[in-house]
Amino acid sequence: MSEAMSELAVSGLYAAVDGHEILRGVGVTVRSGEVHALMGPNGSGKSTLSHVLMGRGDYDVTAGSVTLDGEELLGLPTWQRARVGLFLAMQYPTEVPGVGLEDFLAAATGENENGDEDGDGDLSVRITEEAARLGIPDEFLTRGVNVEFSGGEKKRNETLQLAVLRPKIAVLDEIDSGLDIDALRDISRRVEAMTHEDGLGVLAITHYARLLTELRPDRVHILMAGRIVASGGPELADQLEESGYDGLASELGVEELAVEGPVQRSTDEDPFGDPTAGALPFEV
């Protein structure tokens, strides 16, 4: 992977949810081995950008283009974007009851498509090795994906999948949220190693600068109200840490920080995740 240079190029990207424009001309280019931080206040469109890149159905892309090594992604379904080398580590990884990690990743890589029930063992070995590297106990590998995982365990599991699938470009959507300092360090180190060893390009979306003390960015971009209003080196994150989003906005002469309209959607509704969900317990 390290010899072949890859490039994710986002340009002039506009997107709306339920008729509300959330992204208003986003442009950013991420190449192999680079770490880009995309920072922005709540409601600036950060998560929307991540899901638009991955092709979630709830968003209407109204203009722009997203290419990976020259191939336009916007017309591709989500799973094909993943197959060409894009990965999204989600802010709220979904619980999938009864689906074990190995079956899941075998389906993700198409390794079992020839009906080989046991696979070639390679995937299984990679999963075990990565789990050890990330400090994930074996018992988590046999359970349903993310089911009854803590916030930190879910993020370690996202990183495990990232490492096993070896995409070209990874978008990390608030990978730092819900993490204690040890988990943040473990995950950041693993991601950073992938940028060196595998040439992974990273777009790390975050609200807080604290991630960037562990995962050192080459470039920092500030997203406000659906536009990138500033780009620079790591010093831009320091400036943000100093001034806050309001201060930075007035320094930059930006009036609008967030976009209006329904930005947040619940991702935790899972009618089948909890066997007692919807129960009407009572005692007489």
């Binding site: 991955m54 979630r56 159905g57 379904p77 989500t78 799973w79 993943a82 197959r83 990965f87 999204l88 989600m90 990884p93 979904t94 619980e95 999938v96 689906v99 899941f104 990743l105 389906a107 993700a108 890589t109 198409g110 994906v145 999948q161 699938l165 991702t267 509704e269 899972d270 009618p271 089948f272």
Partner: peptide
Amino acid sequence: IDEDQLYYLESRGVAP
């Protein structure tokens, strides 16, 4: 089937 579960699996490259 939960849409979020489908999207999650598909986002890793699993065909629908």
